[in-house]
């Protein structure tokens, strides 16, 4: 669908450039023209032609043409009921400043990444937990606002496997910049496998004092399936498998998680996670190592 919009853009761009060149050329020519002084009747006739041709007909026809092509494209992008295969449903909830992604049919929850099957329509039901955000994956389609108290729906379809970048596009506060969504489109089989793996994922809690620290400090807000039930911050059950940390702040390389735990307020100033200065660095390190192992 994004492709249709791209074609639309190039067509409009070509047409607009043409209009711009013609109008500017007319203007400049009119300024430089050296003709004989015009008599009133001739001038009147000429100006009427200009006004009707350029002022009325040109914009009217252009607009009609544009609507004729544009409205059907817009119509096809709408999440209207489908006859055959039903679109898959995924819920996306915007938070300051991260994405909560839920697969209602399988109960799988993740954050800041969106896994999609290739080749079939996906309906995303979006809303927000705090302020207005806007869901947008430029290469897959248009955007839709995520508004507290409302459910909006957008239909996307990835035509080939790959990763796409999504980014919040309604200004949502201090860290609007760092609200990036990693979209991964998989072939149907890979997608089913991923969903299956996530559903069957078994996580054993971190033993020892570090585990207690996790329960007391992290688990209050973060959920790790089977370990903690916090619901105010991103679900961490598969954090080890994500490509980025902090919704786009850091690439999730080995050691990045520990760095994030120490420096998250420098890396993403204003985010809701409290500082960890009062926690034992060894415990943090243990927690980070454990989190890195969390993957389906």
């Amino acid at each position: 669908m994004a492709r249709e919009v791209a074609i639309l853009w190039w067509a409009m761009c070509a047409f607009a450039t043409l209009v711009l060149i013609v109008v500017t050329a007319l203007w400049v020519h009119a300024m430089r023209r050296k003709g004989p002084q015009m008599d009133a009747a001739r001038a009147r006739q000429l100006t009427l032609r200009w006004l009707v041709g350029g002022g009325l007909l040109l914009p009217t026809l252009s607009v009609l043409l544009l609507l004729l092509f544009g409205i059907p494209i817009g119509h096809r992008m709408l999440p209207l009921p489908l006859a055959g295969e039903q679109p898959m449903r995924i819920e996306v909830i915007g938070h300051q400043w991260w994405w909560e992604v839920r697969y209602p049919d399988s109960g799988v929850v993740t954050a800041n990444q969106l896994h999609l099957p290739v080749g079939r329509p996906v309906d995303l039901d979006v809303t927000s937990a705090d302020v207005i955000h806007s869901f947008w994956v430029p290469r897959l389609g248009g955007k839709i606002d995520m508004i507290p108290g409302r459910d909006n729906r957008i239909r996307l379809q990835a035509d080939q496997a790959g990763t796409f970048r999504g980014q919040c596009s309604e200004f949502c506060g201090t860290q609007h910049t760092h609200m990036i969504l990693d979209v991964q489109a998989h072939d149907e089989e890979d997608f089913v496998n991923w969903l299956q793996a996530r559903r069957e994922q078994q996580i054993s809690a971190l033993p020892g004092p570090a585990g207690e620290v996790f329960d007391a400090h992290c688990g209050q807000c973060h959920r790790v399936a089977g370990v903690s039930e916090g619901n105010r911050a991103p679900d961490l059950s598969d954090v080890g498998a994500r490509s980025m940390l902090g919704a786009g702040v850091l690439s999730n390389e080995p050691g990045a998680l520990l760095r994030w735990l120490h420096e998250h307020q420098q890396l993403k100033p204003g985010n809701a996670m409290p500082l960890h200065d009062d926690l034992d660095p060894d415990h943090l390190s243990t927690i980070a190592d454990w989190l890195e192992t969390l993957r389906p």
Binding site: A2, E4, V5, L8, W9, M12, A16, V19, L20, V23, T24, W27, V28, M31, S62, V63, L66, L67, G70, I71, I73, G74, M77, S134, P138, G141, G142, K143, I144, S169, E170, F171
Partner: peptide
Amino acid sequence: VGFLVIFVCGGLTGVMLALVPFDWQVHDT
């Protein structure tokens, strides 16, 4: 003259933006 060139250009992109599917793509960019 500067006004004409720049304003006509802005007007043309304005007409593009009024087209809903295109606006969905470039809105807030």
